[in-house]
C-alpha cells in the first residue's frame, strides 16, 4: 500500500500561484477558497528585508490533529495516507479547523475572502450542493470530500484523491512528465510550470520523493508539533521556508 506524499522544492517555486488556480479549477472551489494557497512572508529587518513564499496545501499529516478532534469521525485518514472529509458525515462544527495548526481547512458558509461577490448567492443551487457553478469538474464523491460540497461542511485539499486513487498499484512516483501517469497526478503537480513539485510513495525507498527528501534535506512545516506532515519542503540555499520557520512554533 502506497503512502502518498508531496515534495515542494522552494528553490524552484516562483510563487506564481498556478497551483492555486489549477487546484481551484480541478476541484471546483469557490473564489477565495484556496485549498492550495501560496503563503508570503518577509525575512530580515528593515531596510534589509526580503519577500519570500511557500505553497501550503493540506499536509495530510501522519498524526493529524483534525482527525483526533472530529466528534463524528467525518475526517479520516485513508490507508494510502490522504486525510479526507466525508461530507455525508460532517456536521460543520469546525473543530478540525480550530485544531489544525496549518490553517488549511475551509467552512462552506464563510463569507468570500477575495473581495468579490458571494458566488453562492449568484449561482444558487437547486439541490443539496452549496452552489451551482457555471462549470464544474465531473467528479463528485462526497464520501471523500470531492466535488462541489454541500452546505455547512468543512472542505480541504484531498491530494486530488479522485485522480491519485486510480493510479496503478505499485507506482512509486506520479510523474506528470510521464504521459501514462499524468492523469493520476494531482493537478497542482501537473500544472507547476517550474516543476517544483514531486508526488510519490513515501513508503517506497526508491521513489523520487524519498530521494529528494534525502539528498536535499527535506523539512516539514512546524515539524516539532508532532503531526508528521506528508508534505516536505526542500529549502536549499535560497529556499523560502527556513529551517527555524519549519521547526519553531510562533503561534
Amino acid at each position: 500500500m502506497a503512502k502518498w506524499g508531496m515534495v515542494i522544492d522552494l528553490e524552484k517555486c516562483v510563487g506564481c500561484q498556478a497551483c492555486t488556480v489549477a487546484c481551484g479549477m480541478e476541484n471546483t472551489r469557490l473564489p477565495g477558497e484556496h485549498w492550495q494557497d501560496v503563503i508570503f512572508f518577509q525575512e530580515g529587518e528593515y531596510p534589509n528585508t526580503e519577500l519570500k513564499w511557500f505553497p501550503r496545501p493540506c499536509m495530510h499529516c501522519e498524526n493529524p490533529s483534525c482527525v483526533a478532534v472530529c466528534p463524528v469521525r467525518a475526517t479520516y485518514k485513508t490507508e494510502e495516507g490522504q486525510v479526507l472529509v466525508d461530507w455525508e458525515r460532517c456536521i460543520g462544527c469546525k473543530y478540525c479547523m480550530i485544531a489544525c495548526p496549518y490553517g488549511v481547512r475551509f467552512y462552506t458558509e464563510e463569507k468570500p475572502r477575495y473581495g468579490g461577490p458571494d458566488v453562492k448567492a449568484v449561482f444558487k443551487s437547486g439541490d443539496a450542493r452549496s452552489w451551482d457553478p457555471p462549470w464544474r469538474a465531473p467528479q463528485e464523491d462526497w464520501r471523500h470530500g470531492v466535488g462541489v460540497q454541500p452546505h455547512d461542511v468543512v472542505s480541504k485539499c484531498t491530494f486530488c484523491y479522485h485522480r491519485v486513487s486510480k493510479a496503478p498499484k505499485g507506482t512509486a512516483d506520479l510523474d506528470p512528465q510521464n504521459p501514462a501517469l499524468r492523469e493520476f497526478t494531482p493537478a497542482c503537480v501537473v500544472t507547476c510550470p517550474t516543476g517544483a513539485r514531486f508526488f510519490g510513495d513515501l513508503s517506497n525507498p526508491h521513489s523520487e520523493v524519498n530521494k529528494q527528501i534525502a539528498y536535499k534535506n527535506g523539512v516539514r512545516l512546524l515539524d516539532h508539533l508532532g503531526n508528521k506532515p506528508q508534505v516536505y519542503y526542500l529549502t536549499g540555499e535560497g529556499g523560502s521556508v527556513p529551517a527555524e520557520r519549519a521547526s519553531k512554533l510562533k503561534v
Binding site: Q17, V38, F40, F41, G103, R245, K250, V251
Partner: peptide, 13 residues
Amino acid sequence: RDAAQGFFRRQIK
C-alpha cells in the same frame, strides 16, 4: 494564526 507567524496571502483577482 498566519498573521501571528508573519504570513500573509496575496489576493487573486
